[in-house]
Design a protein around this nucleic acid. Structure first.
Lengths: 189, 189
DNA sequence: ATAACAAACTAACAAGTGTTAGTTAAAAAT
DNA sequence: ATTTTTAACTAACACTTGTTAGTTTGTTAT
């Protein structure tokens, strides 16, 4: 199944609308109207509304999974690994914040195998991050605090970066990254 | 009004469903079924689906607003103030994580005056928090990092606490609070 | 020139949506 | 004992939903 330009366009338009109102609140007629065509015409390019959601979410989830696997397997220090995770989230946020919003808010509307696959990837991602932190605690690079609190605090910030970046576009990516590393690793006090 | 109000029951049931699937994906028939009655019967107690959403979100938004105003006006140190903000979020998360999820995910489905009122409260909340951080930077209690990054990192963690707390209920509130303060203020390195 | 294709259209359907109207039965208030 | 209130019900409404069928139009390949 080839992905045509028009199909990509639908996915991008849909992702933008999903970000604003959520998957359930966006109708096929909304998506069509945003493209200046009729709802039925969308079906020349996509199989269903569900397929749009799947294409938006799964691709990005796979990217997260494969990159963190690579980071975990590398021989860098824990600090360097965490910095690369921060970089990963910033990169994807800058490149495709709509899809990220969609992944965060609408993943529960995936069905059957797609839902199972997504949840597995999300769990694997967290598990990989947990391993990074754990080995950091083991070798003294990371403080011996409650590991779940560390994971949650860090990931929740990185995962919702897209919300905030929609408002504060002025800040430069390098500045953002540098400050993010400072705040997440060394704290604010 | 009675202690066990039927209206309150509807709101609680609805909030739970909204948390799971989002406002738009939950139907009046879903809410009714969860209460073992018919959809039409709900209208003996509530005016509309919209009203349910408003009652869930506005009450909690007002609580956040009034408490942070009190914290801001107090004569505590910046560190103490931030610790109280952390406490505030933990308290509400433990008491009503469903409503919190709803506030975070479905606020955009508020309409007209309710939407305007909510957005104003959210902006005021962020502004109050910004003032706390600013005065902390001014008197040297807080590092002079990009203030928006500080605000975003902290609030995004606190705001999405409900996601994580749904999974890890084992941790004791005092331990959670202590670790949260450590991680957010002093970092993990 | 003609066939094949891509991508739009109109029209419609079956199911589901929030909501209203009118009714009923039991409990509470008078 | 009678009225009022509460909270459920059935039935239906007007509208919206995702989707399909069949058609049309312009472009590309033979």
């Amino acid at each position: 199944m080839k992905i045509t330009d028009r199909k990509t366009e639908i996915i991008n338009v849909a992702a933008k609308l999903f970000k604003e109102k959520g998957y359930s609140a966006v109708t096929m007629r909304d998506i069509a109207q945003a493209m200046d065509i009729k709802a039925a015409s969308l079906y020349n390019h996509i199989k269903s509304k569900q397929e749009i959601l799947v294409l938006i979410i799964i691709e990005i989830a796979e990217e997260f999974t494969s990159v963190i696997d690579e980071i975990l397997a590398s021989d860098e220090t824990t600090i360097q690994k965490i910095e690369r995770v921060i970089q990963l989230h910033i990169d994807i946020t800058l490149r495709n914040s709509e899809a990220l919003a969609c992944l965060n808010n609408d993943w529960m509307h995936l069905t059957d195998d797609d839902l199972i696959y997504f949840i597995k990837m999300r769990e694997d991602y967290e598990e990989s991050f947990r391993k990074i932190i754990k080995s950091g605690i083991a070798n003294g690079e990371i403080k011996n605090l409650n590991i779940e609190v560390i994971i949650f605090s860090t990931l929740s910030t990185l995962r919702t970066l897209y919300i905030w970046y929609g408002k504060k576009k002025t800040i430069k990516p390098e500045i953002l990254k540098a400050n993010m590393i400072q705040v997440l690793l060394n704290g604010i006090v």
